[in-house]
Design a protein around this nucleic acid. Structure first.
Lengths: 412, 412
DNA sequence: GAACTTTATTAATTAATTTTATTTACTTTC
DNA sequence: GAAAGTAAATAAAATTAATTAATAAAGTTC
């Protein structure tokens, strides 16, 4: 199919300009009407008219007066960020972490609930409700009408159209109707997406992806997933499966993965498998301070312990991390040669592994890149750190507010 | 960066509708004004006005009258396809194949020039000019004013903005200024893109991708490349490197590739490497009718010969193809788990290998897919066959004509 | 304090759609 | 075979939201 085309209409024209001005204020504000006109190439009256509507609908407010540059002082405009709120939830295999933020994604309060396994769909949903209720109760000074929605970052495969978690391997659950449940419970708009996708969105709005149009955010922790941003938008693929790079084969004869195949990136580089690999090598007689650190009980070995030993100079652990960096580097090279992002942002547990793994990873990309540009693809850690996914969940709601070209997007 | 927004204006509104109507006529024509209004949800007067302009600019013509459905007969509209022409060129390592087509991409005439190695940038450019001149001379009944542009499908890495072939491994050339050269020589718009991208575009416009928004076209021949279509548009990546899946590592300890790395998909599944692998196995004493077919000179072994022997039932060759199918299947699985296309279209030399390779490839995808949907991703051969790339080259020009939202896109 | 600048708004104009009405050309029905 | 009905296409008027031009407001500069 060739590209889809919109029909032009007065409504479309207006809503395009409305979004354009709203987003210019969001990203450039505080900014004057005159400056908006210059940046967007719209005419001053058009800007004035639309700004008036935005102020009427309470999403934009006039702030202080700016400095004169040889004439009348400009009136600065900003998003009315502090009076409206969004709830973001990150569901990881071990816990439910929920936050309430203002429109600038500044976290006002948070609650965390541990998940005990095994768990059922019903109890997960009730934990989600409980988590939201706690946030609302703790912050009952917030006008319920001023809460714009709930965003949920869920690990695994998510049907974003219906807000259903199709498969959550970390919880061993399937087909959880998150959107339906939360919407009926709280009468708020609910958006659900995959955790890596959410992280990517968070970085695009408030992190290192702020002025990059095409990038990938790779989440390396219990599993490995990627959020792919193309032209400032998330790529979801035909069946919500895009970015499942944990199950990219990079070594046909490699170790067995939980998915049943052999040599998946995840089985070579994700936290639990990393520990598994080290365990095998130690069992075969390799020396390492890890043996002492685990009290001679190798079942206690985790990725985190290996990070720690490596930072203390343990040669065995350093080598394990170097190997892991190489595997990840190969996975990322494959990504570079497939979608060629301008930058790769790393998030998840791996961000705590220090420079050894990262250096090895960068070295591998340099070695494997097909061209100079590929070799020098930038790799960096998330700016939002542990908050990337939950901030991303908040952004799922913000996208609707700022980019849905509907003139009715009055906040109240 | 968050998504980019257009500024709304009367011009935009008009040109969106112009494109919408033009493409509705292209894809649905012959079609009446009334039917266009229904399909596009534009009002009848809007359609009438714009159609009048399209007819004035000669890109649309009224054809016969349609059947009445209980009232006035509709006047059917079609693209004035037969009076305008596009030149398409495919530059492969061995030859330059050029065609002239009408707007329906129907080939009117073609010329082919063999390339003898080694070759320089200058002589390649002069061959390109010669090729176009031959086409023009052979078809001098065609009004030069009615030729809309030249599209070039070039193997390797292409800077599509400047129309420069950055690296053409099959010719061992770099930085060939194709667009600049041909534009100054013929005073026609010139578009250059990678061969796999062109194939994908050709299939999107006139092949199996006709009603699919997201798909991938994989070209397996001397090398392996993919053209990725997302939302009906080609993905080029940050440095024109997207789709270079030939250099995706699928076997860390695999054979050495021309790029210097080990275990690239290309080094396991592309034509020349396929022959290489078979040669090694035969040299080690394996039995096969290939030994007879090459007259005991294994240096004559090619991918094509292996296809032929396999189709005659040679067990050794069948096994080689099965292996190759498995490797390709792994590469495609990686693609499915990264961008999750709704369908994969195979083109290039591999299309001649028969069902053995393809069955093995499909089997591998079924085995490796993470979900039922991934497992059942459709794989098919190009509809346009050997013409896919050159028709795609033509489409590079058609994209400009049909999708550039400029009111001045008067053909003449 | 007169002249100039920048910001913002108002009024008039313009472009393109939409709505409503009309014409054209056919089919159906009595 | 004339009247009634229906669909296609166009014409005229109304509407929308932009652009252009003019003006007001609030400064700065010399």
């Amino acid at each position: 199919m060739t590209q889809k085309l919109l029909a032009g209409s007065f409504q479309l024209m207006k809503s395009l300009n409305r979004s354009l001005i709203l987003n210019t204020i969001r990203t450039e504000g505080p900014i004057s009407r005159a400056e908006i006109a210059k940046l967007t190439k719209l005419t001053p009256p058009t800007v004035s008219n639309i700004v008036k509507e935005l102020i009427d609908s309470d999403i934009v407010i006039e702030s202080n007066q700016g400095e004169s540059r040889g004439g009348r002082k400009p009136t600065m405009l900003v998003i009315n960020g502090k009076n409206f709120f969004v709830i973001g939830i990150e569901v990881s295999p071990a816990s439910i972490y929920s936050v309430i933020t203002n429109l600038n994604a500044k976290i006002i309060d948070s609650v965390s609930i541990d998940i005990h396994h095994p768990i059922t769909n019903e109890s997960l949903l009730s934990f989600l409700s409980k988590s939201v209720k706690q946030l609302l109760d703790k912050n009952n000074w917030i006008n319920r009408e001023h809460i714009l929605g709930i965003g949920v970052a869920m690990h695994g495969i998510v049907d974003i159209e219906n807000g259903i978690s199709i498969y959550a391997p970390g919880l061993k659950l399937r087909n959880i109707p998150i959107k339906e449940h939360l919407e009926s419970e709280f009468n708020l708009t609910v958006k659900v997406d995959n955790d890596a996708n959410s992280m990517a969105l968070g970085e695009a709005w408030f992190g290192h992806g702020y002025d990059i149009g095409d990038f990938v955010c790779v989440n390396v922790g219990q599993g490995i997933g990627a959020g792919i941003i193309i032209n400032g938008k998330l790529l979801h693929g035909n069946e919500f499966l895009s970015g499942e790079i944990g199950h990219m084969t990079i070594d046909i004869d490699g170790p067995k993965c939980s998915c049943g195949n052999y040599g998946c990136l995840e089985a070579l580089a994700a936290g639990p498998y990393l520990a598994e690999r080290a365990k095998k090598q130690l069992a075969m007689g390799e020396k390492s301070m890890l043996i002492h650190m685990t009290g001679h009980n190798l079942d206690k070995l985790t990725g985190e312990l290996i990070y720690e030993a490596a930072s203390q100079g343990d040669p065995f652990s350093i080598n394990v991390l170097k190997e892991t960096g190489k595997y990840l580097g190969i996975g990322l090279s494959n990504l570079i040669h497939t979608i060629n992002p301008s930058c790769i942002i790393m998030g998840g547990g791996v961000t705590k592994s220090g420079h050894i793994l990262l250096d090895s990873l960068k070295e591998t990309i340099k070695q494997r890149g097909l061209t100079e540009q590929a070799k020098s693809t930038q790799v960096m850690l998330t700016k939002l750190g542990d908050q990337a996914a939950v901030i991303g969940a908040v952004c799922l709601v913000l996208v609707e507010l700022f980019f849905t070209q509907s003139p009715q997007t009055s906040i109240i």
